[in-house]
Design a protein around this nucleic acid. Structure first.
Length: 274
DNA sequence: AGGTGGACCCGAACGC
DNA sequence: TGCGTTCGGGTCCACC
């Protein structure tokens, strides 16, 4: 489940391989990837573009081209990139696209469940597209406790559901929301509007701490996630509550419980998180 | 208007 | 052993 730390890790590894490179050849094997656009048309549009920058916005990767256009890649559940090693790309039925760069290297896009998306947008369409969908970057300077409080004010949805909404904070997903709520000692089903200023302050800090922990471990590897270099992340060994039903809370020893919030499996400590 | 739940996928885990 | 069933997860969209 690539969330902000996983996507940022992908970005950091991919950037040196693609920045400054021209796309010589693009093969899109799965028509779902560019839906509703025709993959053949999108592939042809991409050929000849040169990568100026690679940015992450929430869970989106944005390949900025010198033309000003942007390719928005969303990995959803199981998407990922692979840089070809010494033996080239492995023969893999889940490779959905292959891009050959002007230095002769290949970059493969892999996705088991085929939820991921590629969207090629014109220069002035990228920002409006992203800002309509994404709130503040949680590791950016503009993400303050006050800004978070404003996003939560008046919302009666459970705090967990509010945090999964990408317009509240960009890049949070099921794992890091549970981890952040545990750090902040807030029950996932509490209505967002019931949080007081102190709660919001703790939550603001907890969101950053949880994401920074994930970044430091190059993300979490659950099922198939791997970085473009084929490495696994290490964050799955550091989870405080996610996926740990029945195990003791690292803070108080009470067994972790599992419930449902916002339609998702949700883990929390019934003692620390009232 | 804002919140909720189903659809989209398919491998893994589970049940019999 | 082998089969069928359930589950999950990010986002969009229909519905309330």
């Amino acid at each position: 489940m690539p969330e902000l730390p996983e996507v940022e890790t992908v970005r950091a590894q991919l950037a040196p391989a693609v920045i400054g490179r021209r796309l010589e050849r693009v093969e899109i094997r799965d028509s779902r990837l560019t839906r509703p656009e025709d993959p053949v048309v999108v592939a042809a549009e991409l050929v000849g573009e040169r990568v100026a920058a690679l940015e992450r916005r929430g869970k989106y990767l944005v390949f900025w081209f010198e033309s000003g256009r942007g390719l928005l890649v969303h990995l959803r559940m199981t998407g990922g990139f692979r840089l070809a090693g010494g033996n080239g790309l492995p023969d893999d039925p889940y490779v959905r696209a292959v891009v050959t760069l002007d230095d002769g290297s290949d970059v493969a896009y892999r996705d088991v469940r085929r939820f991921g998306t590629w969207q090629l947008l014109e220069p002035y369409d990228v920002e409006p597209f992203l800002s309509a969908r994404l709130g503040e970057e949680p590791l950016g300077r503009r993400f303050t406790a006050r800004a978070l409080g404003e996003r939560l004010a008046g919302r009666r949805a459970p705090i967990k559901a509010a945090l999964l909404d990408q317009r509240t904070i960009a890049g949070m997903g099921n794992i890091y929301v549970d981890e952040a709520l545990w750090r902040a000692r807030i029950h996932p089903l509490r209505p967002a509007r019931d949080l007081d200023a102190e709660d919001v302050k703790r939550l603001h800090r907890a969101v950053r701490r949880a994401l920074e922990a994930g970044l430091a471990r190059q993300g979490a590897t659950i099922r198939n996630y791997a970085t473009p270099d084929g490495e696994s992340g290490g964050m799955q060994h550091e989870f405080k509550v996610y996926g740990r039903a029945g195990e003791p809370c690292p803070r108080c020893g009470t067994p972790i419980e599992k419930t449902r919030a916002g339609g998702r499996g949700t883990w929390y400590c019934p003692s620390c998180q009232r």
